[in-house]
Design a protein around this nucleic acid. Structure first.
Lengths: 233, 233
DNA sequence: TAGATTGTTAATCGATTAACAATC
DNA sequence: TAGATTGTTAATCGATTAACAATC
């Protein structure tokens, strides 16, 4: 695993490579060139080769990349064969959806505990796992040492809770609570997820598309035309 | 509303500005300088001023920005006072969470219909709205003309469904189904959301933090030190 | 060998940061 | 007026794309 700082832009593209290669593998595709992969993913072949070469030469000149091998390499770089001990706090609508919808093993995570402060929720089972009361969190952490916490709690509860968890040894947060989490210590990793922000980009797009319909439309097709022309790789 | 193409990077930052300004307004903060806002948001004052000036001069020299006015301006730019007619298809765990967790009015959207192909789900009420059977989708669209569709359906169902919806007049997709959606027509807006991709960046971070603990730690503090020093604005 | 396609360097492009004159 | 802070231009930095020699 080569060690020169990898840029965040590259890191954020890795899961997508992994996903596409997985689908190709399932379809039985054995080899693929950067050119063909770039076509399918809607990016340039240069970028793919550049990205992959941050980590080493996974391809073979004149041949391309072995789909399965490349996927495994990227999986290893991402760390998906780890078993990061993970807890989820807050089992409202969103928390329950995360617990059931996200495939933790495929993300190198193992969900080892669910917590909620609502006594009507604590005690119940969700996805075959018992929901513990939030009061038992400290004791649990001392015993089980989770390193990743998923926060699906109300905005005002999140910062205090997060500080507490850091003191208990948690090193990474997947934060769905409204409001950004941030730590002075850069060793604490935070991924703030704001679904509304994502939706708002569509709202923006719709608002600014309707404003200058015809102009936009012709401009847009120009862009796509030049895109396909430019990719002379 | 000035018209020179705004870069996606800027657009993606707008919801976050809006969010922070909203919180400041709630706290009763009347004015704020780009310097102070940048400190709170963890970015440079230059970037904030640069971003805002894509849309016009909202500040006042020597004073700063009026929090409430700026928030309203950004809200208007985003189009949050619109009522984009929105449908949601697929009311599994994630679909239900989206329906209940996301504040559609605050995103300029109006949820006008829920659909599911499962006869055990269709007919029920979710968040006080009836879930229609997916078979009734075409009829509904002809009558109600939704322009935005939220897809929480299985991966294999999404592409065909999306094409059908485009034919029925839908112009924007918030896609939660595994697998990316993409249209040849650039006028169709798509926001692909992959929660697992987000989690995987944490998995990556944890894997690569542990590898060179001490080196990382000192490097990291160097970075944060130089960051705070560099902001001589 | 000839053709294909990589790995990698160089060129371009865009986004971020710094600086400062304008001005409230 | 003096101080503060913007709007905006110029400089820097980083990321993407193009090009091509290496090589399978």
């Amino acid at each position: 695993m080569s060690k020169q700082e990898i840029s965040p832009s590259v890191i954020r593209r890795l899961p997508r490579y992994h996903r596409f290669l997985g689908e190709l593998a399932e379809q039985g595709t054995v080899r693929i060139s950067s050119k063909e992969l770039s076509r399918q993913m809607g990016m340039t072949a240069s970028q793919i080769r550049q990205d992959l070469n941050c980590f080493g030469g996974f391809g073979q000149q004149g041949y391309g990349y072995n789909v399965r091998a490349l996927r495994d390499e990227i999986g290893q770089i991402l760390g998906i064969s780890a078993h990061r001990r993970t807890i989820l706090i807050g089992l409202g609508n969103l928390g329950r959806a995360i617990a059931s919808h996200v495939s933790f093993p495929e993300c190198g995570c193992e969900l080892i505990g669910l917590f909620d402060s609502n006594p009507f929720v604590a005690g119940k089972d969700i996805e075959g796992m018992p929901v513990h009361h939030a009061d038992t969190l400290s004791g649990f952490c001392h015993q089980e040492h989770p390193e990743l916490a998923i926060l699906c709690v109300p905005e005002n509860a999140a910062p205090v809770l997060a500080e507490k968890l850091v003191a208990l040894g948690v090193r990474a947060f997947w934060n769905f609570s409204h409001g950004d989490l941030h730590f002075a210590d850069p060793a604490i990793l935070v991924e703030n997820v704001h679904l509304a922000d994502s939706l708002l980009t569509l709202t923006y797009g719709l608002a600014h598309e309707t404003l200058n319909d015809s102009a936009e439309e012709s401009a847009a097709s120009d862009i796509s035309a030049s895109l396909s022309t430019n990719r002379k790789d």
